[in-house]
Design a binder for these strands. Structure first.
Lengths: 228, 228
DNA sequence: TACTGGAAGTGACTATTGTCACATGCATGC
DNA sequence: GCATGCATGTGACAATAGTCACTTCCAGTA
């Protein structure tokens, strides 16, 4: 892989967009290119965390299994995203499992390589700090959503989170099944179904062949902030 | 303030325990010592975030107000803890309000000072990364708790989180009122009361003059992992 | 085309938790 | 001591969302 290719991928979404050539070169040199098939686990909850991944292509689901067996989906990561930094940094176990939901490739960076790169390129640390700041914001916003809102506004928030900005026709980034949406938004499949049906009635979303499309973005945003 | 004093404070709890003298000296030199009375706000949600705080004494509550007015308590911070890094790092607004719940003092560090120190002392970045890794773990664990567990186990978790390790007689770090506990654990005051009464019956906790004491730590841990 | 498995739709019931309305208790200061 | 105010205890009820048990729909394939 060439530095330019990596640069292109990183430039698109991630906070690594402003890496200079030397940094990219080192990432490629010290990193290890890995491919995964749909369903493969890039990271497994409970494992020791001795490496970090930078997603290059594909989409991966980050999820945790609570001690009572309940599965929680934390995020869907796209290319450019960093995965697995937490355990690498604090030396603890991996808190979540990351599963490829389509063919996926990534750059894997070991702890030693990571430390070397951090040492050599001071900007990398700052970049990582920003990545993590963003992640904390996201986590706090999930907590806020879970705590403060009932299911309706919460689902609205997750739909908005899945919606693309320049959305042609309100398409979502990901076509999740209703069960998957339920896991993500923290509600039962049946309840998701009923809520989507209701919104479909009032022309806020359209549900066609299993795929959700946002028709009234403004209304959905409004619902996302409502009291109930 | 002398470097040794700061060193003592940081050594106790925080990830800054291993700072060398030069680092401490710079923190003190570039930092600004601030005092707060009970009830003062160290950080206000919505403000621009141009500084970071290191708590030196006292206890501060981190909370958010959701757009529907619901208040969520994210954490109670003790001395040694870093506050306000997120907004400082990503340049966004402060996501939460931090309120002193007793007289509190802190070292305030501006963005410029922060950047200088980060530049000068490479270990500081790594330390901050660890602080943030810890925060993400905590946030994920809150999400897990909110999503996967019913109120009983969840309250158990929060009580355990408030319990001191070498707890003499199961005392909590903080004597929260039942309303405050409710805000923290995400349940109504009444429900907290009923749950505590039930546990009090079965000798798991004791409630005496408004203060909760954990009697059966093992049992509480067991409840914290239960299916319901 | 008919068969099959998985996703989606739906009604009835249940469970958990919040809300409201009060009673009680307890400390503080006049 | 008594009044005031805030924290706590408790019963009755309402609301939200989950569970169960089906049915229906649809795509892939034998």
């Amino acid at each position: 892989m060439k530095a330019e290719e990596l640069a292109d991928i990183l430039a698109e979404h991630s906070l690594f967009a402003d890496c200079d050539e030397a940094e990219l070169a080192d990432l490629i040199l010290r990193g290890h290119f890995v491919r995964y098939n749909k369903g493969d686990e890039l990271i497994m909850q409970g494992d020791p965390g001795n490496s970090l991944l930078i997603l290059l292509s594909g989409i991966a689901r980050t999820s945790m299994i609570a001690s009572n067996g309940h599965e929680i989906v934390l995020d869907y990561a796209e290319s450019g995203q960093v995965l697995g930094e937490i355990a690498l940094l604090d030396g603890g176990e991996r808190t979540a499992t990351v599963t490829a939901i389509e063919p996926t490739s990534a750059l894997s960076i070991t702890r030693e390589a990571f430390e070397d790169i951090l040492e050599k390129h001071k900007n990398m640390a700052l970049r990582l700090l920003k990545v993590m700041a963003k992640r904390i914001r996201m986590a706090n916003s999930m907590i806020e959503g879970d705590r403060a809102y009932t299911s309706g506004p919460r689902l609205a928030r997750y739909l908005l989170r899945l919606s693309v900005v320049g959305a042609e026709e309100g398409r979502l980034k990901l076509d999740l099944s209703q069960s998957e949406l339920g896991n993500f938004a923290g509600m039962s499949r049946e309840h998701i179904n009923r809520q989507l049906s209701a919104w479909s009635e009032s022309q806020i979303v359209a549900v066609e062949s299993g795929k959700v499309r946002i028709l009234d973005h403004a209304m959905l945003s409004h619902i996302a902030e409502a009291d109930s």
